[in-house]
């Protein structure tokens, strides 16, 4: 690693860069820029940096804990100015500088901004028919991860059957999200395996439309889920969830591969809430004069050759601000965005 003092371009020392959003992409972008010799301010609207990873237990492949990833960044965050509980109110553009005014009325003048505001989890109550918030047994992927982190999962009565519903709020025009959230298939299978590890006798059922196990090692997880854990895969989207007299969840779907309607009683149903646009995107895109796509995520003018570039010269994107991405992809993009900033500023 190059330490700031050894950096070749000493001019960088005096150039400020703002990173907007303290999730994994933001933390990576900030540390990369710091390493390249920039003075970095990281603005996070929450109480602490880490973003969604703070609420996630383990990551696959590799089974490392999210907390270790975040801790890794935070223990190496010297030289990065981190402002928490802060948002951006407005920005003024001058020739080569941007003056950004924060919610605490601080003026920060920077040469470039990396937007790493990430995604929001889909609000599962919108899918009325799944009964989230209505039936105790219905939880979301995020709820389950919280149960894993806190260990409270062990306080729960052993369920005899657990279901996982893929694509909740993703690939669904009805809730205005046509896009695939990319990582939920992985998450569902991962969580099904984790449940089986806790309760080996519990039966697990994944209700999927298409299994999109696209990355290296993902298919292995699918294989393992079938081979080692005996997870059941049912190709059909859950259409309704009810509750019977005994408080069991009654789930209806079509088993499309046998073309028959299917009913199953479950003790727990985990909804794979998808990744949807951050609600702040609209306001931010107005402040920084970037554009957003129909799906509400930020839009890059050249998503293939310049995935981190925006329509404004000094504004860059990284991570799931531009659409659903895995942690590894977000980290990659953060590094790429930091390099793009460096290429712009070191030539000035």
């Amino acid at each position: 690693m190059v330490s700031p003092s050894e950096n070749l371009n000493l001019n960088n020392m005096y150039k400020n860069v703002l990173v907007l959003g303290g999730g994994v992409a933001g933390l990576q972008a900030a540390s990369s820029l710091r390493d390249l010799g920039y003075r970095v301010t990281l603005v996070e609207k929450g109480e602490k940096p880490g973003g969604h990873l703070n609420n996630w237990d383990r990551l696959y492949p590799g089974n490392i804990t999210s907390s270790s990833v975040i801790d890794g960044y935070l223990s190496n965050s010297q030289g990065i100015r981190i402002l928490t509980n802060t948002t951006i109110k407005s920005a003024l553009k001058s020739d080569k500088l941007l003056t950004v005014i924060t919610s605490s009325s601080e003026e920060i003048t920077v040469s470039a901004v990396i937007i790493t505001t990430g995604f929001s989890l889909f609000d599962a109550t919108i899918k009325e028919e799944y009964g989230y918030g209505l039936y105790n047994g219905v939880i979301t992927n995020a709820d389950l991860e919280s149960l894993f982190i806190s260990g409270k999962i062990h306080n729960r009565e052993k369920p005899s059957r657990v279901g996982f519903v893929h694509c909740v709020g993703s690939r669904d025009d009805k809730v205005c999200n046509r896009h695939c959230s990319k990582i939920c298939c992985m998450t569902a299978v991962k969580q099904a395996c984790e449940i089986k590890e806790i309760w080996p006798e519990t039966e697990a059922f994944c209700f999927y439309m298409d299994l999109r196990m696209f990355g290296r090692g993902y298919e292995d997880l699918y294989y393992e889920a079938q081979n080692k854990y005996g997870v059941n895969f049912i190709r059909g989207r859950v259409s309704e969830v009810g509750e019977d007299e005994n408080g069991k969840l009654v789930v209806k779907a079509e088993d499309t591969l046998t073309s028959r309607p299917l009913k199953i009683s479950l003790d727990m149903l985990v909804l794979m809430s998808g990744m949807v646009k951050n609600p702040d995107n609209k306001a931010l895109s107005a402040i920084f004069e970037t554009s957003i796509g129909e799906d509400g995520f930020f839009a890059q003018p050249h998503p293939i050759v310049n995935p981190t570039g925006s329509s404004s010269t000094r504004i860059f994107f990284a991570g799931s601000a531009t659409g659903p991405k895995s942690v590894a992809e977000s980290v990659n993009e953060a590094k790429s965005a930091a390099l793009s900033v460096h290429m712009l500023l070191s030539n000035e």
């Binding site: 259409s239 079509e254 309607p261």
Partner: peptide, 23 residues
């Protein structure tokens, strides 16, 4: 249609007879 089966699963008639819009 991408054959998710939601229609058949929720179908009111499907209790009584094999009704499947998707199929």
């Amino acid at each position: 249609c991408f054959n998710c089966g939601s229609c058949s699963a929720s179908c009111t008639s499907t209790h009584f007879k094999r009704v499947s819009f998707r199929s």
